[in-house]
């Protein structure tokens, strides 16, 4: 088991390396630079700045330098936020994004699986229709519609909750962004769970359990739901990574100081180190959560072995 984890982590290094390499050269190939302003700077100042950030070196040296720093956990200074290093930015922003994302994830898991299982157990009843209809709606309405609508209704019209802002992480400020993040995930997880539960209910081993007169809570709780949760677990890996690393849309609309906005802002401002930092953080999260999911899956399904 530990050997498996170590092997998987070792296997992740080349993946992250490839991602970093592609991202590094893609950014540098793009026209424009971090200090291109409306009015060109004095060439002498420009030269100084370039020297300070190593931009005067050949690209391959910059690349090697970056890799060297990365290996030591240094993501470099931010180009557009002069006084901050990228690590500083993440140190303040990442906890915010993780807090929002993990709350949304937990809520989505609980409600999604419950609603999905309920709909499957009452297939073709009104509960089922309501869940399926709402879930379809939840999947089709994009976040950037949900977010402003929620903000408009509960923030502006009703005035119950703040329409935006972080407020130092007070619960009142968290509710709307967490809801925005959680709603589509509830919908997706509910649909997945419903489908898997229905399939499990039709399976031969559930028929066996019923034929042997096992009470309903055993048939459902023991023999159906464990099988039904498997597809949800595999869905969870990439989703958890995406939720915890922040959402551009939610953070922009609600004005939340997470890391979700850094990528777009960094790309637009040619903040090379910030973009690279975001890519690295996301890649690490994806790799980690895929590993967690694989381990969970193997714990739930004895047919899967670590090899």
């Amino acid at each position: 088991m530990i050997g498996y984890v170590l092997r998987r982590l070792a296997g992740a290094i080349p993946t992250i390396f490839i991602i970093v390499t592609i991202a590094f050269f893609m950014i540098r190939l793009a026209p424009g630079g971090p200090f291109d302003l409306e009015r060109p700077l004095d060439p002498l100042i420009m030269e100084n700045i370039n020297r300070a950030y190593n931009l005067d070196q050949p690209l391959w040296r910059q690349y090697l330098l970056y890799l060297g720093n990365l290996a030591q956990g240094d993501l470099g200074p931010s180009f557009t936020r002069r006084d901050f290093s990228v690590v500083d930015l993440f140190r303040t922003g990442l906890p915010v994004s993780i807090q929002l994302g993990s709350m949304a994830l937990c809520i989505a898991l609980v409600f999604g699986t419950l609603l999905g299982a309920l709909a499957a157990l009452r297939q073709n009843s009104w509960i089922d229709y309501v869940v399926v209809g709402t879930a379809t709606l939840g999947i089709t309405i994009p976040t950037f519609v949900i977010a402003p609508v929620l903000s408009l209704v509960f923030g502006v019209m009703m005035g119950w909750l703040p329409a935006g802002g972080w407020g130092g992480g007070q619960l009142r400020y968290l509710i709307l962004p967490v809801a925005t993040l959680a709603l589509p995930q509830i919908a997706i997880i509910a649909r997945l769970t419903r489908g898997a539960t229905i399939e499990a209910l039709r399976s031969n081993h559930v028929r066996t359990a019923r034929a042997y007169g096992l009470p309903a809570y055993v048939v459902v709780g023991v023999h159906t739901l464990r099988a039904a949760i498997l597809p949800v677990v595999s869905y969870l890996g990439p989703t958890a990574a995406a939720l915890l690393t922040g959402s551009v849309v939610v953070e922009t609309i609600f004005g939340i100081p997470g890391i979700g906005r850094y990528f777009v802002q960094g790309a637009l401002g040619r903040d090379y180190t910030l973009v690279m930092g975001t890519v690295v953080v996301i890649a690490v999260f994806v790799v980690l959560f895929n590993l967690v999911v694989d381990i969970l899956y193997a714990l739930l399904d004895p047919r899967v072995r670590y090899d």
Partner: peptide, 11 residues
């Protein structure tokens, strides 16, 4: 697949 592709679109 393992590349965060939406980000490359943005790039």
């Amino acid at each position: 697949y393992s590349l965060p592709f939406i980000f490359f679109v943005i790039l």
